[in-house]
């Protein structure tokens, strides 16, 4: 005997709308490591949907004399995360009487992110600086703390636009034009500016200004580079 077919409801399923703790405020972060320098940069636009909330809200923070962090994603999480890292780094300085090394900061950031594994900081971070040997280093992360050391990286809203070009222009993938001498710090700086100008043309979440930190053995230098405001 066959079971009677149950009538199906024609009523629309109730829609649920509720508070979302996350916002995507956009932004692009970029870092490039050289033999004895590192350049880390991010645009300063703060977006929400199709609105620009602010044109001058920095995403890059200097953590030690030779380490910087750049974070895009949710501004609220970014502010909190960067505050927390500064807190821990100052504590380290008090306790050990010396600055935290860049790889140590990188490891601490991973641990910090993973602590919030089930309510993540919605941030895409890059750490850049000089390591204990004075070599440029860059660390790239996902939102929950998976990280690796690289020579260059990009994250945030312009990530997909920029990454393939870095592969080509920095790692010389898919090209036979591999130059014999490495790019100097000044040349790298020009590259960074070109990259942001180009990304700003295609990505609505990238624009206004680029905050650039150039880290070498003499310390950290800051430069602001204007982008189109549209």
């Amino acid at each position: 005997m066959q079971a009677p077919q149950l009538p199906t409801s024609q009523v629309e399923q109730p829609k649920e709308s509720r508070f979302s703790p996350y916002q995507n405020n956009g932004g692009t972060c970029l870092a490039l490591a050289g033999a004895d320098f590192c350049i880390i940069a991010a645009d300063s636009r703060l977006s929400l949907g199709y609105s620009i909330l602010s044109r001058n809200t920095p995403k890059v923070a200097q953590l030690t004399t030779k380490t910087c962090i750049a974070s895009s994603g949710c501004n609220a999480d970014m502010v909190t995360l960067q505050k927390y890292l500064k807190f821990k780094i100052q504590m380290y300085l008090h306790q050990h009487g010396k600055e935290m090394s860049t790889p140590a900061v990188a490891q601490m950031l991973a641990t910090t992110l993973y602590h919030r594994r089930f309510f993540p900081y919605y941030t895409f971070n890059i750490v850049g600086g000089l390591d204990q040997n004075g070599e440029g280093c860059v660390f790239s992360y996902d939102a929950i703390g998976c990280f690796e050391r690289l020579k260059y990286t990009v994250s945030g809203s312009g990530h997909a636009l920029i990454e393939p070009f870095l592969d080509n222009l920095v790692a010389y993938k898919n090209t036979d034009n591999k130059p014999t001498i490495e790019r100097s710090c000044d040349e790298t700086l020009e590259l960074v500016k070109d990259i942001f100008s180009s990304a700003g043309e295609r990505d609505i979440y990238t624009g206004d200004f680029v905050d650039i930190y150039i880290i070498d053995k003499n310390g950290t230098r800051y430069e602001q580079f204007p982008l189109k405001k549209d």
Binding site: L48, S51, L53, S54, T57
Partner: peptide, 21 residues
């Protein structure tokens, strides 16, 4: 400005909600 999830920024001009548009 500060909003309900903690987004914070400073600027010369600020408008919230519908005023933003």
């Amino acid at each position: 400005a500060v909003d309900l999830i903690g987004t914070m920024y400073e600027d010369d001009i600020i408008a919230t909600s519908f005023g933003n548009y």
